[in-house]
Nucleic acid binder design. Sequence first.
DNA 1: GAAACCATGTAAGTTGTTACATGATTGG
DNA 2: CCAATCATGTAACAACTTACATGGTTTC
Lengths: 186, 186
Amino acid sequence: MDVRTMCLGILSLGEASGYEIKKMLEGPLGSFFDASFGSIYPALAQLTDQGLLAMSEQAQDKRPDKKVYKITQKGRLALAEALLDKPSRDRVRSDFLASILFADLLAPRELAERLDERLAFHRAMLERLEKYRTDAAEWGTPELTAGMRFVTDYGVAIHRAALDFIEQNRHVIEAASMLRRGQAAD
Amino acid sequence: MDVRTMCLGILSLGEASGYEIKKMLEGPLGSFFDASFGSIYPALAQLTDQGLLAMSEQAQDKRPDKKVYKITQKGRLALAEALLDKPSRDRVRSDFLASILFADLLAPRELAERLDERLAFHRAMLERLEKYRTDAAEWGTPELTAGMRFVTDYGVAIHRAALDFIEQNRHVIEAASMLRRGQAAD
DNA sequence: GAAACCATGTAAGTTGTTACATGATTGG
DNA sequence: CCAATCATGTAACAACTTACATGGTTTC
């Protein structure tokens, strides 16, 4: 799924501006999809050109103009069709896990810092997801769809599992890291 | 972390060919890093040019020649330095979760199929990870480092959490999908 | 007064994938 | 005999990120 399809999908849940789409991707969707302004704005322009979106410019008080996009019937059909494609496998790239894999080359203090940061990250995500789980307004829609609830709860489950795992197993890798330091000093 | 650094890292655990590196990335590392031949081979060539790797060609019986790469001292230093960079945040892109988010647009049968496939995927990954967890030979090394064990166990924890979550919550989203079908037919 | 937020966009550059090219061997 | 595995590589292409450009407003 590319940025164009994701934008189309988000707009199928309700109208939004490019800026708001980006904010949603920093919310609960960010756990499994991300995109920069540099890909969102051109995507919206292209989709509008193709008649899959309708744009209306809204002047705002003490704010720059906002371009609000709304999915068209043609857009809904295109989205439904795109969703029929067999989903490609997940693409994950985690610097954190990579650096843990090579933890031998990391100073114990560095390692501890990374683990702490990671725990903080998961806790922050859980907190944020909790807000989204209970408050539909955070999504910019009056009501949460079943899909929204599912992916939010899924995110909670995964972040909690990661948090628990790291808390319970960090001592193993940290002990190994300190041991290796000792050997290196020999 | 780019493909070059990951190759350097894998080779810091033991020597290997490009083909073998690719196989490792389809193993437990695949959960958090993937790369195609099209990026691995040029990366190895470049690293060798820079003196970070040493290559030795090995003729094989009834097999094409193999180019075995070994990390140099200079390579180890470069890797250690690269690992000091603050790890960038995880990049995840999951078509599965995206299509669940827009599950309203999916026929109940389609949805059920995707969920089944996903469960099968997690089960397959768990099985594969179990093998890696107990058998160092699967990694191509005589001994598992603490890092290897950690990332493998981490993978087990995450896949198990995902599996459990989907098993326990699929009925919610599937019920909503069928309900919506009913409404659409009205 | 500085940083962060709101808001949109473009262009250059990076990075990596897919497809192609080659070819022997092994297992179902 | 067909598919998969072993083994390496290149080139065209796709997709995306980063940095730049602009400028008012709000919060600390």
